[in-house]
Amino acid sequence: MPDLIAPLIPGDVRHRLKALTLVARRAIGDRGLGLHTSRARGSGLEFAAYRPYEPGDEPRQIDWKLYGRSDRFFVREAERESPVALWILLDASASMAQADARAPGYARLDAAKGLTAALAELALAQGDRFALATLSADAFDLIPAAGGTRQRDRLHHALQALGAAGGFPAEATLAPLWDRIGARDLVGIVSDWFDPACLDLATRLAAAGREVLALQVLTVTERDFDLDGGYRFRDPETGEELLGDAAALRAEFLARFAAAQATLAAAWHAAGIRHARLVLDEPLDTPLQALFGRVAR
């Protein structure tokens, strides 16, 4: 069966993800069970498996409907919920739609979706709950935290339908987030981090005890500014335009952009935010390897 929809995670990246573990610095050893014990099965909300009845099991755990069909006792088991959820905040403002001229089919948002799916895959692999919030003034949306493959399907479904439009959402729009993100949750923000509101949100989350991962997605043009000739540059969010000759603008843009990135990195560092960068010509798991790979640990 041909792939009608391109997979969010390329095969090689999916393979390399197996070597990674999502680790929250503050959560390790925090509640006894820890992040990696969530494989322990027991009662819970999320169905995991049926298991034949053994003496000692509580009678209320027996699935009586199944007994009616099969004339055997089966105990319904559920996964125990992990104490830590991974919240993925995906920036879906218009600036995320930007793509490089040499690869117009691979926009910043596509890479961000891939990163989101990879993060969800990591969380799923180690049994953590995960949630998605798409940050856009036009399409602010939430998928509440849950675990399991169905949650992954919900997330993929939401991602495939997602498009980038509008600006970064206002603070009032983001109020539901504060209710839902648990006090010790891991928050990964996938964005280009150009909007100061994004950094503001991250620093406040970090200050409120959430562990924040800053995942920055940049285009090749922003890193190298490899343009030549006359251009009419247009900011997709403000609509502001600028006419200029790319060659004449290059040196100063690179200097100013590097300075801005240094300022941003300093702000992350001050807020205790771990950060990693993905440029569109790099493999999708580059920031994940930097954050969770063997070298990083």
Partner: peptide
């Protein structure tokens, strides 16, 4: 003047 989206404007 080629119109180009450029978020880092």
């Amino acid at each position: 003047q080629r119109p180009t989206d450029f978020a880092a404007l």
